[in-house]
Simulated scan of single mutants.
Amino acid sequence: MKNASTPLGRFWAEFRENRVAVVALAVVVLLMLLALFAAFVSPQNPYDMANLSLMDSRRPPGFVGSGGYTHLLGTDPQGRDLLSAIFYGLRISIQIGLAAGIVSLSLGTTLGILAAYVGGRVETLIMRAVDLQLSFPAILLALVIVALLGQGKAQLIGALVAAQYAYFARTAYGAAKAERGKDYIEAALATPMSGRLVVLRHLLPNCTPPLIVVATVQIANSISLEATLSFLGLGLPVTEPSLGMLISNGFPYMMSGRYWISFYPGVALIILIVAINLVGDQIRDQFNPRLRK
């Protein structure tokens, strides 16, 4: 049990008062564990094309396949066990969401604090570029960048970062700008302390709370955006069954009664995104008491 006298202990004590947020956090942790240990909990490796049989394709939930095990959620058009594909798809979605979120956070925070600290032409140049990026829908930017870079995890993460870093930059800039004019920053600058230490010890810690809130939202947005791109055929290669691709694979069969191919991956995607957003909402409320109901 966390010590309630510490900041983390007080944060957790307040967090667990919201049962919905606690359940959402438990769901996120469970899905992350399933994704992390997908190779151990999945009845089939959906990447191993040699062990897939087209005779098992598009089979309903409960079907016993040629491998001798029951496909609890059915199979997709390639004959992959849908439950296994969902576990591996969760791994891909979470990996890309976290990677894109961390890189966007690092890049956006650096640019935002740099603009607020240096000011002048540097501030104008950075923030006008950020404003220009924010004027375009994220999905449009991601589509253009993925179309230019091609398919692959690195390209997809790069597209998501380019589409989302500006949200972190704007948040970091607003928080750092408010702190930059305060007396304690001026006092720190009047000492022999270097500007880098002033940023790391004073500006950055005070910018962290709002950035954490934005990070939780943007990770969920990254997962949603990746699924959208994969659904449109611009995400990962067909050999990597992301959730968006699984939904796309089953879409042509929706009207023929084979609903499970798209339905179950879609449910997994919705649960993951909603759970992350619920956790993010609670974190936002705790960092900003004025938003509490």
Rank of each mutant, 00 (worst) to 15 (best):
K2T: 14
N3L: 12
N3I: 11
P7C: 02
P7I: 05
R10A: 15
F15L: 11
R16D: 11
R19P: 06
V20Q: 14
V22E: 14
A24R: 13
L25D: 10
A26W: 11
V29F: 14
V29K: 09
L33H: 03
L34I: 15
L34G: 10
F37M: 05
V41D: 07
V41G: 11
N51L: 15
L54H: 02
M55V: 12
M55I: 08
R59S: 07
V64T: 15
Y69D: 12
Y69T: 11
T70V: 15
L72S: 12
L73D: 13
G74L: 12
D76C: 13
G79S: 11
G79M: 09
R80L: 12
L82N: 12
L82V: 08
S84V: 08
S84R: 08
A85N: 11
I86G: 06
F87H: 09
G89S: 12
S93N: 13
I94S: 03
Q95G: 12
Q95V: 07
G97K: 04
L98A: 08
A99G: 07
A99P: 05
L105V: 10
L107P: 09
G112R: 11
L114A: 12
Y117H: 04
V118Y: 03
V118G: 00
R121K: 04
E123M: 05
I126E: 00
I126R: 01
M127R: 05
A129D: 02
A129I: 11
D131L: 04
L132N: 04
I139R: 03
I139Y: 05
L140R: 03
L141V: 15
A142R: 03
V146F: 03
L148G: 06
L148D: 05
G150I: 08
K153Q: 15
I157H: 06
A159C: 07
V161S: 08
A166T: 06
Y167H: 09
Y167L: 09
T171E: 05
Y173S: 06
G174I: 02
G174Q: 06
A175H: 10
A175E: 15
R180A: 14
R180G: 08
G181H: 07
G181T: 13
A187T: 05
A188I: 01
L189N: 00
A190F: 05
P192K: 10
P192R: 05
M193C: 01
M193P: 00
V198T: 12
V199W: 00
L204I: 01
L204S: 00
T208E: 00
L211G: 02
V213H: 00
A215C: 08
T216M: 04
V217M: 13
V217L: 15
V217F: 15
A220G: 10
N221E: 08
N221Y: 11
S222F: 02
E226M: 15
S230P: 04
F231K: 01
L232D: 04
L232M: 13
G233E: 00
G233Q: 05
L234Q: 02
V238P: 01
V238D: 14
V238R: 05
L243D: 10
M245H: 13
L246W: 04
N249A: 13
N249W: 15
G250D: 03
M255T: 14
G257R: 04
G257M: 07
I261L: 12
I261H: 09
S262L: 09
F263P: 01
F263M: 14
V267M: 14
I271Y: 08
A275H: 03
N277D: 07
G280M: 02
D281C: 04
Q282E: 15
I283S: 07
R284G: 13
Q286W: 02
F287L: 14
R290G: 01
R292T: 06
